[in-house]
Amino acid sequence: MSREDPLVITTRVAHAGHMDHWFRGYMVGKDLAGRATLAGLMGLGINGRRLTDDEAGMLDDIAVAWTSADPRIWPLKVSRLASSFGGTIQGIAAALLCMDCHVVGIWESSLATARWLGELRESLRDCAGDPERVAQAARDHLGNRRFIPGFGVPYRVEDERVPPMWRCLANRGRDRLPNVHLFEQVGDVVRRERGIGPNVTGLATAICLDLGFAPDEIGSLLIYLATPMIIANAHEGARQAPAVLQRLPDDRVRYIGPAPRVSPRARGADRGEGGAG
């Protein structure tokens, strides 16, 4: 088959061998087993670069610091509903699909944040160290935008997960890296102009940019880092299989649709006109 053969797809992910398997340029048994961590393997899988132990540790820190697994949180509620008939994997899959939404999900929020930071960096070029220029560029960008990616959290004023994540960053000496620093500077402006603070997805996105991930890679990475929250809920949800989630009591649902009515054919049948349409 030639390189142009439409029946051939090139892949840089993996190939199954006889005694060992290739993954992103490495032999799994020979090069990675016992050396790579789960977070490192995820990073390698997404962008093909092998993370250092400290970088992989940073991903672990994100996963731990942003854990907020209350089953009432919308995507996790979806997991509970989808697993309520006993299927753990169904609950996991449903929550993952729910991440593909622009209001709550990680996917679009991280992409929008990464793109915004990229545009800001581009507009600042050599002036990224000048706080006044950064503030002005951020103000210009804010303009009349209602939704500011990477900022704001529902039900509360501040995202309580942000300070622990900053602490993790500082512990690893990564709190002055370019994107994180820019996000911090922008955060000051957003707080002054709009009165809202950074959210954990915004900060995690900046961290991932500093780790070398491209904007369209970060969503996959962050979703992986969210899986402990999802799996915990899907697992418990499937075990419980609660009847109340399978079907809410009738008195807990309020119908607000059209009032009772009779169809034209039923009216015609009542008048003896025949019911066929």
Binding site: L248, D250, D251, R252, V253, R254, Y255, I256
Partner: peptide, 15 residues
């Protein structure tokens, strides 16, 4: 936070 106590249905009546 304030949150409704019932879920609204718009198309199908419960029961």
């Amino acid at each position: 936070a304030r949150s409704p106590e019932v879920l609204d249905g718009h198309v199908v009546t419960p029961g």
